[in-house]
């Protein structure tokens, strides 16, 4: 006799695959809930830099490092779980949160946290993509195998968030009387801005965010202009 239109086994196969997919997503959601919590806690702590004088950075940053440690632990859990499945199948679920986590780490390090023993508390250290990967204990820019990693886009987007945050810090540091900080931020952001110009971007989210850097540059330049107009730029730090 003629076979049936649909092989009875087919439905079962399709159904079980879809159900597996759904349960993977649920599990991911749980891990990501945790990660989001740690990230927003850390971001909250970091927002105190806007009202903290530089002399008290060390205390603040050690607290931030505590938050980052939890971020790193949860990212480790995420990495172990997600590596069992095709990376890009689920990457969109965590990429925003991971970007935020990356930006807390970059900002903390720039302010002098997580510094190597040789140069404690040195302000202005930029973590590279590789440094960030090392901090999280996960690979970066993986191409040869399919596992959890931090992508270039995630690093760059995280870095742009740091630029925004620093442009805000430039204003507040002047309020706190730390004019040198504003000048240093200005130099840093301008250098990064020039760096981003090197990229050949396509019309995507990265391009959009990179285009926003110029507003941060302008904001900080205005601060430096105000300072220089009033002869307030500390000469020795230049």
């Amino acid at each position: 006799m003629a076979p049936p239109m649909i092989d009875p086994a087919l439905f079962g196969e399709l159904k079980s695959k879809i159900e597996e997919d759904i349960s993977v997503r649920k599990e991911l959601d749980q891990i990501l809930d945790d990660l989001e919590q740690h990230v927003s806690f850390t971001q909250g702590l970091l927002s105190r830099i806007h009202s903290t004088p530089r002399s008290k950075y060390a205390t603040l940053l050690s607290e931030v490092e505590g938050g980052i440690k939890k971020e790193i632990e949860t990212t480790g859990r995420l990495s172990t779980f997600a590596s069992q499945y095709p990376y890009y199948k689920y990457n969109h679920k965590w990429t925003r949160t991971v970007q935020d986590a990356i930006s807390t780490v970059i900002l903390c390090a720039w302010l002098g946290g997580m510094s190597p023993a040789s140069k404690p508390g040195e302000v202005g250290r930029l973590l590279t993509l590789e440094d960030v990967g090392e901090a999280f204990g996960v690979p970066v820019n993986l191409k040869d195998r399919d596992a959890f990693h931090i992508t270039i886009e995630e690093y760059l987007l995280g870095l742009i968030a740091v630029i925004d945050e620093l442009s805000r810090l430039a204003i507040n540091s002047v309020t706190l009387g730390d004019n040198a900080m504003a000048v240093q931020i200005s130099g840093f952001i301008k250098d990064l801005h020039a760096g981003f110009q090197v990229l050949n971007l396509k019309n995507d989210i990265l391009r959009k965010r990179v285009d926003s850097i110029k507003y941060a540059v302008k904001k900080v330049e205005d601060v430096v202009y105000d300072l220089s107009l009033r002869n307030l730029i500390p000469q020795e730090s230049q």
Partner: peptide, 22 residues
Amino acid sequence: QAVRNAYTPMFENLRNELDEHY
């Protein structure tokens, strides 16, 4: 002619990687 600074080499590396992807 893009101004070169401490970060230029890093961005050039990233550019090559991104170009490959694009």
